[in-house]
């Protein structure tokens, strides 16, 4: 401390280091952030603006402020006297979508939890094979998988043929282009999203806890619901969110398996940018969908925080 000279040199070196690091970091982050900000986040802003404009005759927008898109979501304007009449068409599409996504989430949970548990209790080598089998469909084209599902559930598909050959049914079951088909398709599409996070939390589970449960007189069901499920809860919640959100915004599944008749939000939005040529309304619907997703994520984040503060 006696000589001031080296001290200020040290301070300068520390400052220089920090500055260098900041500059390096900024350059390293620049490309990724620039691309995502420009191509993914800026467009959301444009969508917000578009949702308050007037549709152009041949698609696109005309720059005239209007809240019609949001009004149209709930009401229909009477052609003759210009009064607003409640219109349930779009609300019911949203409710249908939420219902289908919730149902698919529940279905995926019922199938996915036992599967994840089964994998987690396997020896390490077998586990990797099972995990690979569960992950692989996730990396194959969703469109093709959905198309493959269409092939087997349609009237002359393999399921109907087998059931008829076995004499269980005399005429084919009509599954395709029904809600059931969409429901099955959603589970099929997003099942890996349910299995993987549950597996991740079960893998960390110390199975001597299960033995301790039995040791303390719990039977199988009680061990399952009082020991295993509570410990796997973070994975279950993550899995449900990961199935619900893409399920809610699904496009391909209802398009192919619902035959374009049983609309979900995703198709309705896409339609506004295609045949319906109502970009502002499509933008508004997309924003409402995004708001739903954000609400789900926020509720989850708040619950997680409350859980953490209860434990701590």
């Amino acid at each position: 401390m006696s000589d001031r000279e080296p001290q200020s040199a040290l301070a300068a070196a520390i400052d220089q280091n920090k500055r260098n690091e900041r500059v390096t970091r900024a350059w390293l982050l620049a490309p990724a952030l620039a691309i995502i900000l420009a191509i993914s986040i800026l467009p959301l802003g444009i969508t917000v603006v578009y949702s308050f404009l007037t549709p152009g005759t041949y698609g696109g927008v005309t720059w005239e402020f209007s809240t019609d898109s949001y009004v149209q979501f709930l009401f229909q304007r009477d052609i003759f006297d210009d009064t607003l009449v409640f219109n349930s068409a779009y609300v019911s599409i949203f409710l249908r979508s939420i219902g289908l996504a919730l149902g698919a989430t529940l279905g995926a949970l019922i199938l996915g939890f036992p599967t994840a548990y089964f994998i987690a209790t396997k020896p390490r080598e077998q586990r990797n094979i099972w995990l690979f089998l569960i992950t692989l469909p996730f990396w194959t084209n969703l469109l093709i998988r959905t198309y493959a599902m269409l092939l087997i559930i349609r009237d002359e598909g393999i399921i109907n043929i087998m059931l008829m050959k076995a004499g269980i049914i005399s005429s084919p079951l009509t599954i395709l282009y029904t809600d059931t088909a969409v429901f099955i398709g959603l589970i099929y599409s997003f099942l890996p999203f349910m299995v993987l996070p549950i597996y991740a939390s079960l893998e960390k589970l110390d199975f001597s806890l299960v033995e301790a449960g039995y040791d303390l007189y719990a039977n199988r069901l009680k061990v399952l619901f009082h020991v295993i499920v509570p410990l796997a809860k973070p994975g279950i919640v993550a899995g449900c969110i990961l199935v619900f959100i893409p399920g809610l915004g699904a496009y391909i599944t209802p398009e192919l398996l619902g035959g374009g008749k049983k609309l979900m939000i995703g198709n309705m939005i896409a339609m506004q940018f295609g045949a319906s040529r109502n970009w502002p309304f499509g933008s508004a619907a997309a924003l409402i969908l995004m708001a739903l997703v954000i609400v789900v994520l926020l509720v989850n984040a708040l619950a997680a925080r409350r859980g953490a503060s209860n434990n701590g």
Binding site: M1, P6, Q7, A9, L10, A13, I14
Partner: peptide
């Protein structure tokens, strides 16, 4: 704060 030297030479930074 402070300094480190190696054989009498300041190597702090």
């Amino acid at each position: 704060q402070g300094s480190i030297s190696l054989q009498g030479q300041d190597i702090t930074d």
